[in-house]
Design a protein around this nucleic acid. Structure first.
Length: 271
DNA sequence: CAACCGACCTGTTCGC
DNA sequence: TGCGAACAGGTCGGTT
């Protein structure tokens, strides 16, 4: 569920309440959520660590702790984070909680239990295969033009490949392809240089808009740490708009399945 | 190398 | 009203 803009929003929201805090313990009632190391070692290594910085890489939240440790969290489809007083009533969907010295807790709420927590000394172990950050200088038009020619994959699937670009998910891939006027089923090496440049600009534009709108909340799945919703869903041109009129032409938004993912596009103005 | 599909989980919505 | 099927923002691993 959370893609780059949602994770970025969460990271920004968490800095104020968490940076400088000391983690004293971890609770967990669903062992699979702890990917690395096991719960016993996690508790032993994280106790007493101070949160020095919080950042994002792709869809991962990265907490730099003192002592050279890095806590990494991936929210997958249904993860949410919140910082609340430890006295707040227990929530059955909170499967992992980081107990803080302040008397508060960082709670990891995850209905579907797909989320993952890692504690590593080498972040590269978890983040090493990620592609460039789409809002960084490494992701530039010339690079994309070149890369699309090197690959022969369906363009939408390529955008979802985190080793190609980090952070783009199903919503923003559909929205970027619509903005660029490119059919999601095209092979990447069939795009002209002009189309690749348009796609580059569109990816940046939708991600920045998503961040400006604090992410997209649909059915309450994504929530900011304080429980509030984002507004990006109000800006969707195609995602979730199957059978509705295109906002740019007389066409109708189509829904198809590509690479096993629901895909939305206008077949009248995306070529 | 790439496409496809089932797993991993649970809740909500949709169609009959 | 009831019930099963379909669907959901993500990734991984095994197969073709």
């Amino acid at each position: 569920m959370p893609e780059l803009p949602e994770v970025e929003t969460i990271v920004r929201d968490l800095r104020e309440p968490l940076v400088g805090q000391t983690i004293v313990d971890v609770r967990n009632d669903w062992p699979r959520l702890i990917a690395l190391p096991d719960l016993a070692e996690l508790r032993a290594r994280i106790g007493g660590r101070i949160i020095e910085a919080i950042n994002r890489r792709g869809k991962y939240l990265v907490f730099n702790l003192d002592g050279g440790e890095t806590l990494i969290i991936h929210l997958k489809m249904s993860g949410q984070l919140s910082v609340v007083a430890a006295t707040e009533p227990a929530d059955p969907y909170v499967h992992t909680a980081f107990v803080l010295a302040s008397g508060e807790e960082l709670r990891f709420h995850d209905v579907r239990k797909f989320g993952r927590v890692y504690l590593v000394r080498d972040p590269g172990l978890v983040l090493g295969d990620l592609g460039p950050e789409p809002l960084s200088a490494a992701f530039n038009p010339d690079w994309l033009v070149d890369q699309l020619q090197q690959r022969r994959r369906v363009i939408k699937s390529l955008l979802l490949d985190q080793t190609f670009i980090a952070g783009v998910g199903n919503i923003y891939a559909d929205e970027a392809l619509f903005l660029a006027g490119i059919n999601p089923g095209r092979r990447s090496d069939s795009l002209t240089a002009a189309e690749a440049r348009a796609l580059h600009a569109a990816i940046r534009r939708v991600l920045k808009l998503g961040i400006a709108r604090n992410g997209a909340s649909i059915d309450g799945a994504y929530r900011r740490p304080d429980g509030s919703s984002g507004d990006m869903q109000l800006e969707f041109a195609v995602y979730g708009r199957a059978e509705e009129p295109c906002i740019r032409c007389p066409g109708i938004v189509q829904r198809i399945v590509l690479g096993g993912r629901s895909t939305h596009y206008c077949n009248a103005c995306q070529f």
